[in-house]
Design a protein around this nucleic acid. Structure first.
Lengths: 145, 145
DNA sequence: CCTTGACCTCAAGTTCACTTGAACTGGCAG
DNA sequence: CTGCCAGTTCAAGTGAACTTGAGGTCAAGG
């Protein structure tokens, strides 16, 4: 089952055709050929897109993702950078945990102002502690308009 | 020690003066008065900024943050929304954990292509599982240029 | 009193990640 | 053969979150 077309990739991946063209232009994915003008994709592009989505959701820019996972999808990976990114994620995760705890607490705390609640202030400090080497960018995917 | 000036807020918080003005315009922080043209801030703005930074780092938009933590810094909080946001964060954290594990693994895995590594594919699937209700936006703070 | 320089306003510019619009093309159903 | 229309290109637009630049103001030091 070679060669799926852009509409099908969009359907299967949930990524819009316009985005797929954009990603191809950026070199994040590649179409395998053309039928007339129409791009033909290898089904493997779906794995690639899952990887991209995961990276995006984890706070990496498209450029970073491109650098992390080779331009053609194969090996060429900087292991040191991967480890660095993993450490970065660790710090992000720690901050997110603090934020989540803070939110959960705020949802039930009876203090008049959260700033007057020692628990909340402690969480804030804990979260702020991970300040150095903050994350840089991450967006949720837009739901189909 | 009332009334600190914008340069000091910037210094103490690490947030640029231009950003502070921008935040004020957006209603995320408030200056407490003026000396001539110059804004005077209450030291409490620093807590507020820590909260904003935390929220941003956790993937919330400035608008969401504004809605989450009252316009003036006091109570007015929708507990249901806070809980919802906390759940959202939980899902994000789970995905981030998967991503981090994936990166760590990729950094040591000898498979020629990560897609051929069963461990990596498993992580990818695990991460993809949390797809519904994805995060929307989060940026790392720019370091001082 | 006069200069200086930090701060002010307001408009426009920047980056990222896409989306939209206009104009065109070509495989395929009828 | 002839349209249809999903797909194409290319340029421009969008929204979020800031930053930059031009030109103006004013409190404080000399």
């Amino acid at each position: 089952m070679r060669d799926i077309d852009i509409a099908e990739v969009a359907e299967l991946s949930g990524v819009r055709a316009s985005t797929l063209r954009f990603y191809e232009e950026k070199g994040l994915i590649a179409s395998h050929g053309r039928r007339g003008l129409r791009r033909l994709f290898d089904p493997g592009v779906l794995d690639r897109l899952a990887l991209i989505a995961l990276g995006r959701a984890s706070g990496f820019s498209l450029d970073e993702i491109g650098r992390m996972f080779a331009p053609d999808g194969r090996p060429r990976i900087d292991r040191k950078m991967l480890a660095t990114k993993a450490d970065e994620l660790d710090r992000t995760i720690r901050r997110l945990n603090a934020m989540r705890d803070g939110l959960r607490h705020a949802a039930v705390c009876p203090a008049p102002s959260h700033m007057e609640c020692p628990t909340f202030r402690r969480l804030l400090r804990a979260a702020a502690a991970g300040k150095i080497g903050e994350p840089k960018r991450a967006r949720k995917s837009r739901r189909k308009s």
